[in-house]
Design a protein around this nucleic acid. Structure first.
Lengths: 129, 129
DNA sequence: TCCTTGTTTCGACGACTGTCGAGACAGAGG
DNA sequence: CCTCTGTCTCGACAGTCGTCGAAACAAGGA
């Protein structure tokens, strides 16, 4: 356990399948990978954390900003941040006393692609050049 | 309780918020509604069911087609279909002996919108003919 | 050095979820 | 009428999840 987390950013890589849900049946492996990310999004607190971080000035927010928004204990917020981190949706970076979290936009774009009926989600055109 | 299910298609209506996650912080209510739908998508079996239905010929599939794909009992498949139904993602219609399920494309499009970094998901212009 | 503040990890608890078998309901066809 | 097939509902069970308090770790300042 020399690293910070176990499988930190693994999921972000696996959700690279760009065929939309409605076009062809998902394989067992694809659906398992996607489900992991959707499960991370399937909690109101995590969803709000994600949007708070993403919409914060500079695209990043420190934990101290996030804790005050909810009526939840610090450890609980930390737990949700860890889940989002392990899903490859956010990354944290320590700068001095505080830790700043930032959203990895590619994964969101790919998820949007999968959900889109057409699969044509322009705006993330530069994800795999 | 004269209807088939309790809150069958309620969620489909509430997920009409089109401001993307990354643009502004989600309210508590918005995040709760979105989380319900994402939670429904947060299971590999349900994700696969959804794509099997959506990609099936004619845009619909009967339960008998879906059951054979998985190593799961009938009641379990029925349970997952109910969850997808209650999330407003699919609808079922009985025709003779079999029950056919169909995907409601609007919700998927709106979810794609929310996840998209730009929020520009064209293709949902003609959702209510 | 010690102390204070910010953040995470560790156990523990109740609540929810996925799965199953048994049984009930709905149509079709004798 | 009865029977057969397809689908759903009902309980029950193990496993997972969200939450908390206590404690540990990290960095800065007196």
């Amino acid at each position: 356990m020399s690293k910070q987390d176990s499988g930190e950013q693994l999921l972000a890589g696996t959700v690279e399948c760009c065929s939309p849900l409605v076009a062809e049946p998902l394989s067992g492996e694809q659906s398992a990978d996607l489900a992991r990310v959707f499960k991370a999004l399937g909690d109101p607190v995590r969803l709000r954390l994600l949007s708070l971080i993403a919409s914060h000035a500079g695209g990043e927010a420190c934990v101290c900003d996030l804790t005050d928004v909810f009526d939840l204990s610090g450890p609980t917020i930390s737990h949700h941040l860890k889940v989002l981190r392990q899903a490859g949706l956010i990354v944290g970076e320590r700068r001095g006393t505080w830790i700043y979290y930032r959203v990895l936009p590619d994964v969101l774009g790919r998820l949007a692609d999968v959900l889109s009926p057409t699969g044509t989600h322009r705006g993330v055109g530069h994800l795999a050049p």
